[in-house]
Design a protein around this nucleic acid. Structure first.
Lengths: 352, 352
DNA sequence: CTTTTTTGCACAATCGATGGTGCAATCAAT
DNA sequence: ATTGATTGCACCATCGATTGTGCAAAAAAG
């Protein structure tokens, strides 16, 4: 019946079978047939044939001809935390809704890898690229620009194209205020009892730290230099920093501002090596929301970045290439301890 | 200098510029030039020119010709939990190491969407597909088979091709034993004090439930039917089930077996509506590991599925198409409360 | 019954890379 | 010097879909 059920049917196969020219078959199947004045009955015939032979268009050929692929890319630093995984989840939903195919890749926060990954995606003629949390957004920009690829920065800003990021300064302020607010006025926090851990020398960290400092100075009157410990975005370096602090001070600070949930995992590693009592009076503020993190045995205040808002805004802005690059701030939300928020998964239907 | 720095250079451009034929240029750039007896000096010349003009091969054209794309696909149900996000992270690392390009998509546990997603990926001529946690693996198999695409099941097994999954029965047993073991012999658990929540009618849930029942009967002597509540894989249906139980019984069971971290989030939602005291003597066993979940204020025993092991095995088996389909079990690990394990992120280098 | 207009479709070039084949030029062998 | 082998590369068809163009046949206008 079929020539080789193993090989996919092409427009040429359908052309042979129907005696209709390949170009007409193509027009019918890609929807341009009205414009080409193809008879309704011919179209019908071809559609039936296509269905019968399970025709699907070869996207490589289509992409080659059209020089676009229908693929929309999202480049993430990593997958494995709730902030970035919800970013991927939300992104997917948006792209699918537009009838395109999402493709997500990670680039490990390595500038070199970021550029290579972009090159690679470009070689597949992706239509748009969302650059999320890139260490060197402008480097990636060069690559995209050279290929005429629409792109936009998310989470960490660049200077060469629009960026949609959290309002990290405001977020830093809110979180710091909330942490300090947890302490009663009869037992107030002293400046050296509130430390910041995690992050590195990127825009987000700098802004959060700036917010932290401003609020700390305003409310506690001082901000010793030693209370800031950027440890990079890894659990282990954070753990080591906590251990070091503990060694030196004999205890943890009463209050911690942790720069990301990844760094928070460093605190978990520290915790597993120490008894409960070490954390009896600890208050943690964490920039990033993780539902389980919110229910730990001590008060954990979290900042939830508005992923849905950022993605939505990014989709609007990626079209906008006439105006000069701008940074768009999206306000994050303060999440009180013991709070279970809904997420992108809640939109899915569930079958039992 | 360049004709249009906006359009990427092709082998024809390099051909024009060098006076060397396109086929020779192609051979040099794709590495087959020795086989074609191209002079070293010619190759050198072309390589230099390619470098100078930032040539990168057009993968669509290459894919069209070769009918393979260099893309390796991973289909996930969802991104947004630590099990699947670590799956994506680990998968990426493996694919990159093989010099291919990973592409990850999610299909929302919807059989229809699973098949369409597969079709879609196939139309991009992906080389291999890893089908993870599919609701209808055999449906996806048909699609892959028809296209002659190598594929393999992970996490949930199919009957038509090899599957690599957790040893859910053993895992269910281990977890149930561990939960029961938390209760002292002077205050032992009664059968109706241990309930299972979450999961649906899939292979993984069934096996875990079977393990749960077997151990429960062996150790506690009975297993009332009502103690099993499959709620689907959504936080909210799980929350509702907890609420319902609480309404009826006036309290939660002393011990819970929760079928996945997604369902565990349903417990968090329940918790946020109830005071701490409700959970004072609760013991939870959760199938899936989440580092933050491990540190909640009550004992949480978790099963970590061996993602690295599963991916590694899957890569081995995907080549193996001669032997009849088999299910390969990978043993998960029991994680005691308050344990922070390292994950795929720990392999990345970190720059501060 | 012509001429003009419209309808319906076929033809052929093109996108960029690949690989089988063939043909000069160079070199080795007799 | 003639034949045969080897080297080095160009030519061209091909992968599957798209799209500008052209041309008959049918329909409408005169």
């Amino acid at each position: 019946m079929k020539k080789d059920s193993r090989k996919k049917a092409t427009i040429y196969d359908l052309s042979m079978l129907s005696g209709i020219s390949p170009s007409t078959v193509s027009a019918v199947l890609n929807g341009t047939w009205r414009k080409r004045r193809i008879k309704e009955s011919t179209a019908e015939l071809i559609r039936d044939l296509a269905e019968k032979h399970q025709y699907t268009t070869n996207r490589q050929a289509q992409g080659l001809r059209r020089s676009r692929s229908g693929l929309v890319g999202l480049m993430l630093p990593v997958y494995d935390n709730r902030y970035f995984s919800s970013m991927a989840q939300t992104f997917e939903a948006h792209v699918r809704q537009r009838g395109q195919c999402p493709i997500v890749v990670s680039s490990s926060r390595d500038p070199q890898e970021e550029r290579e990954t972009a090159e690679n995606l470009i070689s597949y003629s992706i239509d748009e690229l969302f650059i999320c949390g890139a260490t060197d957004p402008d480097g990636v920009h060069e690559v995209c620009e050279a290929a005429g690829l629409k792109h936009i920065n998310i989470d960490l800003p660049g200077t060469k194209t629009h960026s949609v990021i959290s309002d990290n300064y405001e977020g830093g302020r809110m979180l710091t205020e909330a942490i300090i607010g947890r302490f009663a006025s009869d037992d107030p926090l002293s400046p050296d009892e509130l430390s910041l851990f995690g992050g590195r020398n990127d825009h987000a960290s700098r802004e959060r730290i700036r917010g932290f400092r401003d609020v700390k100075r305003a409310l506690l009157g001082a901000d010793p230099e030693a209370s800031i410990q950027p440890t990079g975005y890894s659990p282990n370096t954070a753990r080591i920093a906590f251990e070091a602090f503990f060694e030196k001070a004999g205890r943890l600070p009463r209050a911690l501002f942790i720069n990301s949930s990844i760094n928070f995992e460093g605190l978990l590693r520290f915790m597993s090596a120490h008894p409960h009592e070490t954390f009896a009076d600890l208050v943690v503020g964490c920039y990033d929301y993780d539902p389980f993190g919110s229910f730990l045995p001590f008060p954990v205040i979290m900042m939830r970045q508005d992923v849905e808002g950022m993605i939505t805004k990014a989709f609007e802005l990626i079209e906008e290439t006439r105006t000069p690059p701008k940074i768009h701030l999206i306000r994050p939300d303060l999440v009180p301890p013991r709070t279970a928020l809904t997420g992108p998964l809640d939109g899915l239907k569930d079958i039992v």
